[in-house]
Simulated scan of single mutants.
Amino acid sequence: MKIVIIGAGMAGLTAGIALKKFGHEVAIYEQTEKILPVGAAISLWSNGVKCMNYLGLTEQIKRLGGQMNDLAYIDGHSGDTMTAFSLAPLVKEVGQKPYPVSRAELQNMLMDEFGREDIHLGKRMTQLIQQDDSVQVKFADGTEISTPLLIGADGTHSITRTYVLGEQVSRRYAGYVNWNGLVKASNNVAPLEQWTTFVGEGKRVSVMPVADNRFYFFFDVPLSVGLENNRNTYKSDLKGYFEGWCPQVQYLIDQMDEQTTNRVEIHDIEPFLKFYKGSVVILGDAAHSTTPDIGQGGCQAMEDAVYLARSLQVNTLGIEDALQRYQDKRNERTKEMVLRARKRCDVTHMKDDAVTQAWYDSLKKEKGQHIMQGIINNIVGNVLD
């Protein structure tokens, strides 16, 4: 079957690879002239890695992934360790190591695996119309295409979602701003194979190891939405927000490159359960835009892609039947992930001072089991369990 995907991000590329493996003829249309990753890196938890394994990309992901063997929380002011433990029990429980990876490197790998010749850039969709057994798509450059199945992987600002739902939904500001990037890994910040998070005042500073001796870093600060965004003041801004924090955090700020650092106001979208209309279906952020607080956004997009491809392959009562089964399998799980991330966001970023302080206090008593069980709960129940 000929299939068109709108959007060449992680969701669209993963779906394209999966569908090609089942013999479909797939083309991806992307509105930008040049594909650039959104964010510096992504934490691929074990369920996301299993999706990559399923698509035959095991070795590619291992090469891109950092060795994240341990986890620690550090008091951001004193630099004292609140809790630290090995992730080995988690890996044994779920059967796969997690891999933090550079977004740019992951996206390039996925484009190579899909086939760049089938990715059409500079194609901004302006209209889609269902006509009998096909979907007509119009682009801003005046071109038109027709396809039996249209997959919307066009992100948090999805046009396809508006078509499926019959209305445009609003994004919800989660209450904090995130700065993220890549730096050379250094023991002056944290152990090289450890996911380390400094916490205090509802703020977070975190580093994860990625390939080639680098740390993926991010800073979270609860702030009002719509503040000035001046790349040239990122370091001084963060020095102000984290004044009095421990030397490790100050060293990290000094090492970051303002010109390659991203600043993002974090939003999500209220969960909904309708993922398709006729022969048009959505996945990834178009279907369930979430905050990054449990690291499941990309992983859920990959689960979507694998299950959608499998549903189209094994169900033979027609496209809409397969899309209905995909929707019914995925919508409740992704809704739960959005709400879990929102709840974790509120605790981490001090929506309620007492709740966040209670969490800080609990970290000092944590041996690892509670935190790992929370992560395991996000991983299990995926399409490949």
Rank of each mutant, 00 (worst) to 15 (best):
1 M>C: 08
4 V>Q: 04
4 V>I: 15
10 M>T: 13
11 A>T: 04
13 L>K: 02
19 L>S: 02
25 E>V: 10
31 Q>G: 02
31 Q>L: 11
34 K>L: 14
34 K>Q: 14
38 V>F: 13
42 I>Y: 01
56 G>R: 02
56 G>I: 13
62 K>H: 09
64 L>N: 03
67 Q>R: 09
77 H>P: 01
81 T>G: 00
83 T>V: 14
84 A>S: 13
84 A>Q: 08
88 A>N: 03
103 R>L: 09
105 E>V: 12
107 Q>H: 13
114 F>M: 02
115 G>D: 10
120 H>G: 07
122 G>W: 10
124 R>K: 14
124 R>S: 14
126 T>M: 14
130 Q>C: 02
136 Q>G: 03
136 Q>I: 15
140 A>D: 12
140 A>R: 02
143 T>E: 14
144 E>Y: 01
146 S>I: 12
147 T>W: 08
147 T>D: 03
150 L>F: 08
152 G>N: 04
159 I>T: 14
163 Y>K: 02
164 V>K: 04
170 S>M: 11
172 R>Y: 11
174 A>K: 00
174 A>R: 08
176 Y>N: 10
184 K>W: 04
198 F>M: 06
202 G>C: 05
209 P>Y: 11
213 N>S: 13
214 R>N: 10
217 F>Q: 01
220 D>V: 10
222 P>R: 00
223 L>P: 01
223 L>V: 15
223 L>K: 03
224 S>L: 12
224 S>A: 14
230 N>M: 08
233 T>K: 05
233 T>R: 05
234 Y>L: 08
234 Y>I: 15
235 K>P: 10
236 S>D: 14
237 D>S: 09
239 K>R: 12
239 K>L: 14
239 K>Q: 14
240 G>Q: 06
241 Y>D: 13
242 F>N: 00
245 W>G: 05
249 V>T: 08
253 I>C: 08
262 N>Q: 11
265 E>N: 03
267 H>R: 01
278 G>Q: 07
278 G>F: 05
278 G>S: 07
280 V>F: 06
280 V>G: 07
287 A>D: 01
292 P>D: 11
293 D>S: 11
293 D>F: 13
296 Q>G: 00
297 G>W: 06
298 G>I: 15
299 C>F: 13
302 M>E: 11
303 E>Q: 12
303 E>V: 09
305 A>Y: 07
312 L>D: 11
315 N>T: 09
319 I>L: 13
322 A>W: 06
326 Y>R: 07
328 D>E: 15
340 R>N: 12
348 T>S: 15
350 M>L: 11
354 A>V: 15
356 T>D: 05
357 Q>E: 15
358 A>G: 09
362 S>P: 00
363 L>M: 13
370 H>N: 14
373 Q>F: 09
378 N>A: 15
